[in-house]
Design a protein around this nucleic acid. Sequence first.
DNA 1: ACAGACACTCTCCTTTTGGTGTGTATAAAT
DNA 2: ATTTATACACACCAAAAGGAGAGTGTCTGT
Lengths: 137, 137
Amino acid sequence: MRRALADPDIEKRSEGPVPETFDPALEKLVEDIIGKVADKWTMLVIETLEENGTLRFTQLGKTVSGISQKMLTQTLRRMEEDGLVRRTVHPVIPPHVDYALTPLGRSLGKAFCGVWIWAEKHHDEIRRARAMFKAKG
Amino acid sequence: MRRALADPDIEKRSEGPVPETFDPALEKLVEDIIGKVADKWTMLVIETLEENGTLRFTQLGKTVSGISQKMLTQTLRRMEEDGLVRRTVHPVIPPHVDYALTPLGRSLGKAFCGVWIWAEKHHDEIRRARAMFKAKG
DNA sequence: ACAGACACTCTCCTTTTGGTGTGTATAAAT
DNA sequence: ATTTATACACACCAAAAGGAGAGTGTCTGT
């Protein structure tokens, strides 16, 4: 993926993860999506909803450790816009709104799973790498 | 993963991606790692190095579309610190430095692959969701 | 009459992020 | 003597991210 390089001896020996069609607009969209879904809060919200099923706003706020109200609202809105969560408003008083993952959101959760597992699996290796780096530079 | 919820009827029906030990410090480390590796530039650099193998600084700059020199240096340093890339300095003049993925970096690339594939696979669905959201709100 | 619950919104402020442009060391080439 | 190439570092500045806290509407409970 991604063209370029003025240098001739690079190129080929590629084998990108996905068979590409090299549409620059689509590429931009995909990068945009990646930029959004790879957001820390998005990932944590997905994880929380995966584990707990449907949750209300304040419950989410308590569960996603360290998130501010503002960020929670913002994250949820964007996720709703992208079709990752379904927002259900029950018109009662006091207000009752709950959030659940859509199938799309759940599929993203699975895709992320690989990264979580990677992090859990390799954190030791990373800590050692950091120590080495600090020690020798 | 992650405790809490004052609500009793939540809890259980969990089944997190990874068998946890609930060490809060480790959890923080993992979140920190996620926060760093899920960075846009990190992902793009990994992808570029995966496709092209060893590259020099300026080649990377040209290949990773839109990255500034500053961000490239910064990203590479952090990746080096975390053991994702190996930085090799050839003491010649003019300077020659090249970068390659470590096995750890390559394994992260594979983990990310799932997210890339997800994005490529579902971008249509997302576009439709966005259109719907704009239309009805 | 007043407080409380809920799901926000709005404003203010600080921190972080990231771009641009300039400087540097050194030797070879012009 | 000047230019070129390389891999940055550093300083300055604009924009974006994100936290804190107050406000809002409406009904219920005291």
